[in-house]
Amino acid sequence: MDKLSEQDRAFVERAGHHRLHARGSAIVSQGQASGPALIVEEGWLKSAHVSAHGAQALLGIIGPGAVVGALQILTDTPHTGEVTALTDSQVLHITKPRFLQLLAERPAVEHAVHRSLFSRARDAEGHLASICSLPPEQRLCRLILCLVQGYGERTGSGLEICIPLSQLDFAAWAGVSIETVQRILRTWRRRGIISTGRQRITVLDATSLSRITCVNGRASR
Protein backbone atom coordinates (compact mmCIF):
# COMPACT_ATOMS: atom_id res chain seq x y z
CA MET A 1 0.00 0.00 0.00
CA ASP A 2 2.98 2.30 0.40
CA LYS A 3 3.28 2.56 -3.42
CA LEU A 4 -0.14 4.17 -3.84
CA SER A 5 -0.45 7.73 -5.12
CA GLU A 6 -1.09 10.45 -2.55
CA GLN A 7 -4.66 10.73 -3.78
CA ASP A 8 -5.37 6.99 -3.39
CA ARG A 9 -3.62 6.92 -0.03
CA ALA A 10 -5.75 9.80 1.23
CA PHE A 11 -8.85 7.98 -0.01
CA VAL A 12 -7.83 4.87 1.94
CA GLU A 13 -7.17 6.83 5.13
CA ARG A 14 -10.58 8.48 4.97
CA ALA A 15 -12.20 5.04 4.67
CA GLY A 16 -11.13 3.89 8.12
CA HIS A 17 -10.11 4.98 11.59
CA HIS A 18 -6.70 4.92 13.25
CA ARG A 19 -6.06 2.84 16.35
CA LEU A 20 -3.02 2.45 18.56
CA HIS A 21 -2.13 -1.06 19.75
CA ALA A 22 0.29 -1.50 22.61
CA ARG A 23 3.19 -3.91 22.32
CA GLY A 24 2.05 -7.45 23.11
CA SER A 25 -1.65 -6.75 22.61
CA ALA A 26 -3.83 -9.11 20.58
CA ILE A 27 -5.27 -7.52 17.43
CA VAL A 28 -6.85 -10.52 15.69
CA SER A 29 -7.89 -13.80 17.30
CA GLN A 30 -7.45 -17.19 15.63
CA GLY A 31 -10.81 -18.27 14.22
CA GLN A 32 -12.14 -14.71 14.23
CA ALA A 33 -14.67 -13.96 11.48
CA SER A 34 -13.53 -11.90 8.49
CA GLY A 35 -13.39 -8.10 8.77
CA PRO A 36 -12.25 -5.47 9.35
CA ALA A 37 -9.26 -4.96 7.06
CA LEU A 38 -6.18 -3.69 8.88
CA ILE A 39 -3.42 -1.59 7.31
CA VAL A 40 -0.23 -1.22 9.35
CA GLU A 41 0.88 2.41 9.44
CA GLU A 42 3.58 2.27 12.09
CA GLY A 43 5.18 -0.56 14.04
CA TRP A 44 5.43 -4.33 13.61
CA LEU A 45 2.96 -7.18 14.06
CA LYS A 46 3.36 -10.94 13.97
CA SER A 47 0.97 -13.60 12.73
CA ALA A 48 1.00 -17.04 14.35
CA HIS A 49 -1.04 -20.23 14.35
CA VAL A 50 -1.56 -22.05 17.64
CA SER A 51 -2.30 -25.77 17.51
CA ALA A 52 -4.80 -27.59 19.70
CA HIS A 53 -1.86 -28.68 21.86
CA GLY A 54 -0.59 -25.12 22.31
CA ALA A 55 2.34 -25.31 19.89
CA GLN A 56 2.92 -22.05 18.04
CA ALA A 57 4.00 -21.68 14.41
CA LEU A 58 5.00 -18.18 13.38
CA LEU A 59 3.43 -17.40 10.00
CA GLY A 60 5.13 -14.10 9.32
CA ILE A 61 6.07 -10.57 10.29
CA ILE A 62 3.80 -7.71 9.22
CA GLY A 63 5.22 -4.23 8.79
CA PRO A 64 4.23 -0.75 7.59
CA GLY A 65 2.12 -0.77 4.44
CA ALA A 66 0.96 -4.37 4.82
CA VAL A 67 -2.71 -5.33 4.79
CA VAL A 68 -4.15 -7.85 7.25
CA GLY A 69 -7.49 -9.55 6.73
CA ALA A 70 -7.94 -8.87 3.02
CA LEU A 71 -7.87 -12.56 2.07
CA GLN A 72 -10.44 -13.39 4.76
CA ILE A 73 -12.73 -10.62 3.52
CA LEU A 74 -12.42 -11.62 -0.15
CA THR A 75 -13.01 -15.32 0.59
CA ASP A 76 -15.40 -14.79 3.53
CA THR A 77 -13.38 -17.15 5.73
CA PRO A 78 -12.18 -16.83 9.34
CA HIS A 79 -8.61 -16.00 10.32
CA THR A 80 -6.40 -19.10 10.55
CA GLY A 81 -3.97 -17.43 12.95
CA GLU A 82 -3.70 -14.74 15.58
CA VAL A 83 -2.12 -11.32 15.06
CA THR A 84 -0.21 -9.65 17.89
CA ALA A 85 1.64 -6.34 18.13
CA LEU A 86 5.41 -6.85 18.35
CA THR A 87 5.86 -3.13 19.02
CA ASP A 88 3.58 -0.22 19.83
CA SER A 89 1.77 0.07 16.50
CA GLN A 90 -0.67 2.32 14.68
CA VAL A 91 -3.15 0.47 12.49
CA LEU A 92 -5.87 1.73 10.17
CA HIS A 93 -9.10 -0.25 10.65
CA ILE A 94 -11.52 -0.39 7.70
CA THR A 95 -14.86 -2.17 8.05
CA LYS A 96 -15.58 -5.08 5.73
CA PRO A 97 -18.33 -3.30 3.72
CA ARG A 98 -16.23 -0.14 3.36
CA PHE A 99 -13.16 -2.14 2.32
CA LEU A 100 -15.09 -3.97 -0.41
CA GLN A 101 -16.48 -0.64 -1.60
CA LEU A 102 -12.96 0.79 -1.60
CA LEU A 103 -11.69 -2.02 -3.83
CA ALA A 104 -14.57 -1.53 -6.24
CA GLU A 105 -14.10 2.24 -6.47
CA ARG A 106 -10.30 2.48 -6.56
CA PRO A 107 -8.61 0.06 -9.02
CA ALA A 108 -5.14 1.08 -7.82
CA VAL A 109 -6.04 0.05 -4.28
CA GLU A 110 -7.43 -3.26 -5.53
CA HIS A 111 -4.21 -3.95 -7.46
CA ALA A 112 -2.10 -3.05 -4.41
CA VAL A 113 -4.07 -5.48 -2.23
CA HIS A 114 -3.70 -8.26 -4.81
CA ARG A 115 0.06 -7.63 -5.04
CA SER A 116 0.31 -7.84 -1.28
CA LEU A 117 -1.58 -11.15 -1.23
CA PHE A 118 0.57 -12.63 -4.01
CA SER A 119 3.76 -11.51 -2.27
CA ARG A 120 2.77 -13.09 1.04
CA ALA A 121 1.73 -16.32 -0.71
CA ARG A 122 5.13 -16.46 -2.46
CA ASP A 123 6.96 -15.87 0.82
CA ALA A 124 4.90 -18.54 2.57
CA GLU A 125 5.64 -21.04 -0.21
CA GLY A 126 9.39 -20.33 0.02
CA HIS A 127 9.35 -20.64 3.79
CA LEU A 128 7.48 -23.96 3.63
CA ALA A 129 10.00 -25.30 1.11
CA SER A 130 12.84 -24.25 3.42
CA ILE A 131 11.33 -25.99 6.44
CA CYS A 132 10.69 -29.19 4.47
CA SER A 133 14.09 -29.42 2.80
CA LEU A 134 16.75 -27.83 5.01
CA PRO A 135 18.34 -28.88 8.32
CA PRO A 136 17.72 -26.61 11.34
CA GLU A 137 20.94 -24.56 11.15
CA GLN A 138 20.36 -23.67 7.52
CA ARG A 139 16.71 -22.82 8.14
CA LEU A 140 17.67 -20.39 10.89
CA CYS A 141 20.52 -19.02 8.80
CA ARG A 142 18.29 -18.25 5.80
CA LEU A 143 15.68 -16.69 8.06
CA ILE A 144 18.20 -14.35 9.68
CA LEU A 145 19.75 -13.42 6.33
CA CYS A 146 16.31 -12.59 4.92
CA LEU A 147 15.52 -10.44 7.95
CA VAL A 148 18.85 -8.63 7.70
CA GLN A 149 18.37 -7.98 3.99
CA GLY A 150 14.83 -6.70 4.48
CA TYR A 151 14.94 -5.05 7.88
CA GLY A 152 18.61 -4.69 8.82
CA GLU A 153 20.04 -1.45 10.19
CA ARG A 154 23.77 -0.81 10.03
CA THR A 155 25.47 -0.24 13.36
CA GLY A 156 29.09 0.24 14.31
CA SER A 157 29.61 -3.52 14.55
CA GLY A 158 27.38 -4.93 11.83
CA LEU A 159 23.76 -5.24 10.67
CA GLU A 160 21.11 -5.35 13.39
CA ILE A 161 17.62 -6.78 12.80
CA CYS A 162 15.38 -3.88 13.77
CA ILE A 163 12.35 -6.04 14.60
CA PRO A 164 12.22 -7.20 18.25
CA LEU A 165 12.01 -11.00 17.93
CA SER A 166 12.61 -13.42 20.77
CA GLN A 167 14.42 -16.73 20.45
CA LEU A 168 11.02 -18.38 20.89
CA ASP A 169 9.79 -16.42 17.86
CA PHE A 170 12.75 -17.65 15.80
CA ALA A 171 12.07 -21.22 16.91
CA ALA A 172 8.39 -20.96 15.97
CA TRP A 173 9.24 -19.42 12.60
CA ALA A 174 12.03 -21.86 11.69
CA GLY A 175 10.05 -24.88 12.88
CA VAL A 176 12.65 -26.01 15.43
CA SER A 177 12.84 -26.24 19.22
CA ILE A 178 13.93 -23.32 21.40
CA GLU A 179 16.85 -25.47 22.59
CA THR A 180 18.03 -25.88 18.99
CA VAL A 181 17.89 -22.12 18.40
CA GLN A 182 19.83 -21.45 21.59
CA ARG A 183 22.50 -23.99 20.65
CA ILE A 184 22.94 -22.62 17.11
CA LEU A 185 23.08 -18.99 18.24
CA ARG A 186 25.59 -19.90 20.94
CA THR A 187 27.83 -21.52 18.32
CA TRP A 188 27.56 -18.51 16.02
CA ARG A 189 28.37 -16.13 18.87
CA ARG A 190 31.45 -18.15 19.74
CA ARG A 191 32.59 -17.98 16.11
CA GLY A 192 32.07 -14.21 15.98
CA ILE A 193 29.31 -14.41 13.36
CA ILE A 194 26.61 -12.69 15.42
CA SER A 195 26.04 -10.91 18.69
CA THR A 196 22.78 -11.09 20.61
CA GLY A 197 20.89 -9.17 23.26
CA ARG A 198 17.34 -9.08 24.53
CA GLN A 199 15.19 -9.56 21.40
CA ARG A 200 18.12 -8.39 19.31
CA ILE A 201 20.44 -10.08 16.80
CA THR A 202 23.30 -8.28 15.05
CA VAL A 203 25.08 -9.97 12.17
CA LEU A 204 28.82 -9.31 12.50
CA ASP A 205 30.04 -11.53 9.67
CA ALA A 206 27.47 -11.86 6.88
CA THR A 207 29.93 -13.71 4.64
CA SER A 208 30.38 -16.55 7.12
CA LEU A 209 26.64 -16.68 7.70
CA SER A 210 26.02 -16.92 3.96
CA ARG A 211 28.40 -19.87 3.71
CA ILE A 212 26.17 -21.87 6.03
CA THR A 213 23.29 -21.71 3.56
CA CYS A 214 22.61 -24.60 1.24
CA VAL A 215 24.92 -24.93 -1.76
CA ASN A 216 24.06 -27.72 -4.21
CA GLY A 217 22.09 -29.45 -1.48
CA ARG A 218 24.92 -29.41 1.05
CA ALA A 219 25.99 -27.09 3.82
CA SER A 220 29.13 -25.13 3.05
CA ARG A 221 31.33 -23.82 5.82
Score class of each variant (00 low, 15 high):
Val113Leu: 05
Ala52Arg: 12
Leu74Ile: 11
His93Asn: 05
Cys146Pro: 06
Leu102Asp: 00
Phe99Pro: 01
Cys141Gly: 12
Leu58Asn: 09
Ser130Arg: 14
Ile144Lys: 07
Leu58Ser: 03
Glu110Pro: 00
Leu92Met: 09
Lys96Cys: 04
Leu117Ile: 14
Arg98Thr: 15
His114Tyr: 13
Ile73His: 00
Ala57Met: 10
His49Thr: 12
Val109Trp: 00
Leu128Phe: 10
Ile73Glu: 06
Thr77Cys: 06
Val83Ala: 01
Ala108Trp: 15
Gly126Phe: 13
Gln72Asn: 13
Phe99Asn: 04
Ile94Pro: 03
Thr95Val: 02
Lys96His: 09
Ser51Leu: 09
His127Leu: 10
Leu74Ala: 07
Ser119Tyr: 14
Ser119Glu: 15
Ile144Arg: 05
Arg139Pro: 06
Val50His: 03
Ala66Gln: 12
Gly65Gln: 08
Leu102Phe: 01
Arg122Gln: 14
Gln138Trp: 09
Ile73Val: 08
Leu147His: 12
Ser51His: 07
Gln56Ser: 13
Gln101Thr: 10
Pro136Gln: 04
Val109Ile: 03
Leu143Arg: 08
Gly63His: 04
Ala129Asn: 13
Gly60Gln: 12
Leu58Pro: 03
Arg120Pro: 06
Leu140Asp: 02
Gly63Met: 01
Glu110Ser: 10
Leu103Val: 05
Ser89Thr: 00
Ala129His: 13
Cys146Val: 03
